[in-house]
């Protein structure tokens, strides 16, 4: 199949993201990329674990963390992962409108998550946990902040795709792009699950 072909719901393949060689390459390449990203975050997690109680007299995680906010943020992000699954489901069914709708919801949830995270950082800074306060503070902001920047990048990626393709619908050229964006979004979600566990839950237990 060629990328430029015009397709209908009947001719649209079951796995549009891998129907062309280009799509297959992107699919595989992106999985490899996520493998590298995993190692990147693993290195940061290891660093954080080594430094998480090195507060140098500054605020500790038990004193700071506001679990309700974090919990809501977690729920938002988990839900957004689910909505992006719906979006891809509709993509595979060649239902462009519904896909756009669900991606739209995903973006809104992601934005809400990002807002909460910024609010959270703002609060912590005001309670005396500056970036340069201690090894713990540096490690915390770097790990969680890098995840946050991934969220921001993912959001702008999905938005760009939605706007760019708003008028022309699905084809085999953009289907892999949507698919990968959602894959990236899932990855961000999985990283957050680990952050929630390692940074917040373990931080509360001490």
């Amino acid at each position: 199949m060629h990328v430029e072909e015009k397709l209908t719901a009947e001719t649209f393949p079951a796995e549009p993201e891998r129907a062309t060689l280009e799509g297959k390459n992107k699919f595989l390449g992106f999985w490899f990329f996520l493998g590298g990203e995993t190692v990147l975050f693993a290195s940061l997690f290891a660093t954080f674990i080594a430094l998480r109680d090195k507060t140098a007299g500054g605020p500790t995680s038990e004193e700071l963390f506001q679990m309700p906010v974090v919990f809501v943020a977690t729920m938002l992000l988990l839900t957004s992962s689910l909505t992006s699954v719906y979006a891809i489901h509709h993509m595979k069914n060649f239902d462009f409108k519904k896909m756009q709708l669900w991606f739209g919801i995903t973006v809104l949830l992601g934005l809400a998550f990002l807002g909460l995270e910024i609010f959270e950082f703002y609060e912590y800074v005001h309670e005396g946990l500056k970036y340069s306060t201690s090894a713990f503070s540096s490690a915390f902001y770097t790990l969680v902040g890098l995840h946050g920047s991934h969220v921001a990048f993912g959001l702008s990626w999905i938005l760009t795709l939605m706007i760019r393709n708003a008028k022309r619908g699905l084809n085999l050229y953009n289907a892999p792009k949507f698919y990968l964006a959602s894959l990236y979004w899932h990855f961000i979600d999985v990283v957050w699950v680990f952050i929630f566990t390692v940074v917040y839950l373990m931080g509360m237990v001490g």
Partner: peptide
């Protein structure tokens, strides 16, 4: 940041 500054809890072995 203070990842490697022992005075503020950092560790160079990392």
């Amino acid at each position: 940041a203070n990842f490697f500054d022992p005075a503020l809890g950092g560790n160079t072995i990392i």
